[in-house]
Design a protein around this nucleic acid. Sequence first.
DNA 1: TGAGTTTTGAACCAAATGATTCAAAATATC
DNA 2: GATATTTTGAATCATTTGGTTCAAAACTCA
Lengths: 210, 210
Amino acid sequence: MIQNITRPRGRPRSFDETGALERATQVFRSKGYDGVTVDDLVAGMGVGRPSLYSVFGDKRTIFLRVLRAYAETKGALAAKALFSPPTLRDSLAGFLRNAVETATEEGSAPGCLLICIAPLVDDAEVRQFLQDAVAAAAALVERRFCDAISAGEVPSDFPVAARASQVLDLGRGMTMRAQMGTSRKTLLKDAEEAADLVLLPRRGNATSEG
Amino acid sequence: MIQNITRPRGRPRSFDETGALERATQVFRSKGYDGVTVDDLVAGMGVGRPSLYSVFGDKRTIFLRVLRAYAETKGALAAKALFSPPTLRDSLAGFLRNAVETATEEGSAPGCLLICIAPLVDDAEVRQFLQDAVAAAAALVERRFCDAISAGEVPSDFPVAARASQVLDLGRGMTMRAQMGTSRKTLLKDAEEAADLVLLPRRGNATSEG
DNA sequence: TGAGTTTTGAACCAAATGATTCAAAATATC
DNA sequence: GATATTTTGAATCATTTGGTTCAAAACTCA
């Protein structure tokens, strides 16, 4: 097999770029944004100081890159959890379970970069990115509700926007609790109950009828 | 009327102690914990640097004091909102509206010290305080649900703990949205809808019957 | 008015932090 | 093996930050 990646000219790097970024994610997740120093990044990413600046830029630039990659990854997982299951209940439960899982994954500090950390960053670009990400998340959940209406799973007057916003709020709440130390086990159970709350049979609701 | 407060001996202070603490609250609410420098506090509180240290102590001490005072005040407001109205629905709506109002009050940065800021502080005492505060909040909502059971407003098998945790999660979610710029008007409407979500007539539920 | 007391502002100091420089190291190419 | 190229680690520098010192100011009390 032909190796079409020719090695670059000079001294090879002693670190893996994407790996270093993942470790940067952990640093920001555990210490927030303002709490992170360049020394923290140097130590956490395993990249020498001059290399860090020349390859990744300063703290703000690194954070923005980390944030975008994080949103990309978690957003894809969320979409998958939302659109894979056949029933709406399983979709919502899966979506919220997924949120709980990323908020309690081992090897990272509990919580979520997008929900717990980024909103505190005093930076216009971060704010704009967050606005867009939140809007995208809402749109995702709303679309799933609309699919459920089309499938006749819920009545056509189902309050899509309100319920989507509530699902996201419940997810945010559980994520904040994860950050404060609530166990994954507890939160996974709460995720199920939250999905039920939004969909449980109401008077005049077709959810589990027919 | 006899003035029983004898003026202290030396040079009078140029600042009001409780007023300065309130302004410190604003500083922390707008910049987080790690984002605040002593200079920020000096500027924000209107207290000279040596006075600040001698009267209030260092940043951590000030934050703890601010946090306790904040929790005291907001906790009392929350309890009032929760236990004043006669119906459970009005209690929950009032509780959530109150949360929205403190999260969007003018003159302060949007958000909540207890929900958005304090959880990121890497300090054992802060963590412990937060744990206790959260437990107290949950107990408050649960008690209101129990009262409603006693009053026959909801059936005796009403899932008190689960619903209380959901109410708090919804409040947390709305508070986070406040921090990210969602308007008070929007959030107040969402507070009503959240109260409805938790209590709206279900099949086999006595909520709005009788 | 003068002595005693407390607060204040300016200056000051040490430590932490952000960022760069530069020679040595590690590689490809000739 | 010599040269060119890139990365690296150590050292370095300026700035910010946390915290203290001290003389002057503002007050009470005798």
